[in-house]
Design a protein around this nucleic acid. Structure first.
Lengths: 357, 357
DNA sequence: CTGAGTTGTGAAGCCGTATGAAAAATATAA
DNA sequence: TTATATTTTTCATACGGCTTCACAACTCAG
């Protein structure tokens, strides 16, 4: 019953063709090549024959056809605010590592903080039948009907697991460190409005500041304005702050990138970091340790966060009905480097002077 | 003939159901919703009826089924060495922008320079039926049977378009700049072996150096060793170089990230940049301008390169039989900032001394 | 009645998966 | 030995949802 197969056809061999060649039905071949539960009722000899032929003709099941039938694409959608340096790349390294181990690929889109895209992309990806979503620093407005894991999402949504940093602890580490160095007049840089971490971290800061008796002065609190993801983040706000007043000895930046911009602004204002102003960053991106001065910063285990989030997502996809935690908390770590130092008496005295106008 | 449709079914409505409800055949509905050429043979009134119903029932064609049929997935595979800061993010920003305008999404994988993955990933993505490939700094060993556009690929492969920087020009800009500042003893940092730019750029350097009479001394040429993508890239090699000799006044780094590491090594060795050693970077990543000292560097229009590469790829996918250029050349730009300066007589004198042991 | 529009459709794909049941082989009962 | 039950092995067939193209049905002018 064997019919010769021309191996040099342009398209890869299909299940049907292979079955014909073997004198079996597609059903049988399908069972065998998938090693499906039903395959154990196929004679061992037949199984071997099928597998040998599949190998010989390099049979690869068509992904689309299979996905169409099984409603699984082994693809997840990743939604991020932007392809930023530091944060994004570190998280994605972790995500990719885990996904590829488990046979998933991912489609990435960046919404740039634009509400229209935040609504549009989930639709687009749902159309593509992704098996699940990984949200990075992104808050969706409508629920999705596949598993979702969110990194730094902060808002609780039904069915969405959230992997996040312990912000209370972060605030504590940073503030206590500055406090111990003698800083009492601290400026704070908050994130962009759409940076989800920002508000929650800010609350933690307020709380801990009160606890150890650091007074938070509104005039020393600035917001990142630009939407770009470069040291531009921090530069203009700190430059402007320094132009109007110098009655602070330290600044706690929203992230390392902004901290680099802040340091530049400090230098450009003729001051020195840390001698005149100490700077604390956030994230511990890879260049933080190599910057001059190297950055004292709160490290987020970003790679690990990506990895764990991906792991949880895949589990939820594969076993949807088991119970899952709705939060995974990660612990920050204080990396003490050169950008923070003891308050100098000399600088402290500045505090007494009226702000530069 | 209208049959009521239960709108609250769990699965989205299918073409067939919609057709039944309209009392038309799936074929007709398909023609209309796709606005296919054949649709003009459908009465205007019918067309409107179909579109109205499609809208009402929120009909969305099933992507998988359609792709299965048309053999188009509107998905491209992007293969990069690593999710690196700087280079990768900037290129991808450009790529994403263009792809999303044209309705394509992309699957990204990073091979980390591992040969097994470089072979494996194209297969994996081909199985997923991507419509084309975008290679970033990656050289494939086997040809692919879909359109491919490569960024900084350098090796000519049949049917692969290559978007690349004019390395002759880059070398000229950097060396002439250093030359004009009086530098004659220049150290060079080459990229990792798998960094495709490295060799080609090096040849350009050799050539131009000879032309203007800069002697390239092998003992001043170092290689990036680690595979990581952080300032670690540059730090150890420069540290070691400085430990063994100090008879150079400038160093031309493989990229900005490495340059940041290099500057750190210079500082840690008790020297100053640029007063003692000038540093030239490459790429002009976003933090280059904010580093202290800010980086003199050769700017690559990375975002634009990504954009153009994506554009060309999409064109090639959609019109495969037209002729296309096999190279798109981009021009570098010299960004003069603080990390380079005039050779000081004082330093130059060091040159006469024997190297530090 | 013929030829030329106009409007629409039937049915064959695309390539697998899943399920109930048939066919073949073997075992058990009468 | 024949009939019946049981197990083993395999298959027919109905999807999944959409595209495509040759052709059908109808209308209308000439």
């Amino acid at each position: 019953m064997k019919r010769p197969i021309s191996q040099n056809q342009d398209r890869p061999i299909s299940l049907k063709t292979l079955a014909e060649h073997l004198g079996l039905s597609p059903a049988t071949v399908s069972l065998v090549v998938n090693n499906a539960p039903g395959a154990k009722s196929i004679a061992l000899k037949t199984r071997e024959r099928v597998l040998a032929a599949a190998k010989k003709f390099e049979y690869k099941p068509n992904f689309l056809a299979r996905s169409l039938r099984t409603r699984q694409t082994f693809t997840i959608g990743v939604i991020v605010p932007e392809f930023s340096e530091g944060y994004f790349t570190m998280v994605m390294n972790g995500v990719e590592e885990h996904l590829l181990q488990t046979g998933y690929l991912h489609l990435v889109v960046s919404h740039q903080g634009r509400p229209d895209l935040i609504d549009e992309y989930p639709r687009l990806l749902t159309e593509r039948a992704v098996d699940g979503f990984l949200l990075v620093n992104t808050l969706l407005r409508a629920p999705l009907d596949v598993p979702v894991v969110s990194i730094s999402g902060h808002k609780k949504m039904r069915g969405v697991c959230n992997a996040m940093l312990d912000h209370d602890h972060s605030a504590q580490l940073a503030l206590q460190h500055l406090y111990d160095l003698g800083h009492r007049d601290i400026a704070f840089m908050k994130g962009q409005p759409h940076a989800l971490d920002s508000e929650s971290r800010w609350q933690s800061i307020l709380q801990f500041a009160e606890k150890i008796g650091i007074r938070i002065r509104p005039e020393l609190c600035v917001h990142i304005r630009t939407n770009s993801w470069s040291p531009e983040l921090g530069y203009p706000v700190v430059r402007d702050l320094l132009a109007s007043r110098r009655d602070f000895t330290a600044i706690f930046c929203f992230n390392d990138i902004a901290a680099i911009g802040a340091i530049r602004a400090i230098v450009d204002a003729g001051l020195r970091c840390p001698q005149d102003i100490s700077v604390v960053g956030f994230d511990d991106i890879s260049s933080a340790a190599y910057h001059t001065p190297s950055l004292t910063t709160i490290r987020q285990p970003l790679r690990r966060m990506g990895e764990m989030a991906a792991q949880l997502l895949v589990k939820r996809i594969q076993h949807p009905h088991e119970p899952y935690p709705d939060t995974i908390m990660f612990e920050p770590e204080l990396m003490i480097r050169e950008s923070t130092g003891l308050v100098r008496q000399q600088r402290k005295s500045t505090r007494q002077k009226p702000p530069v106008e």
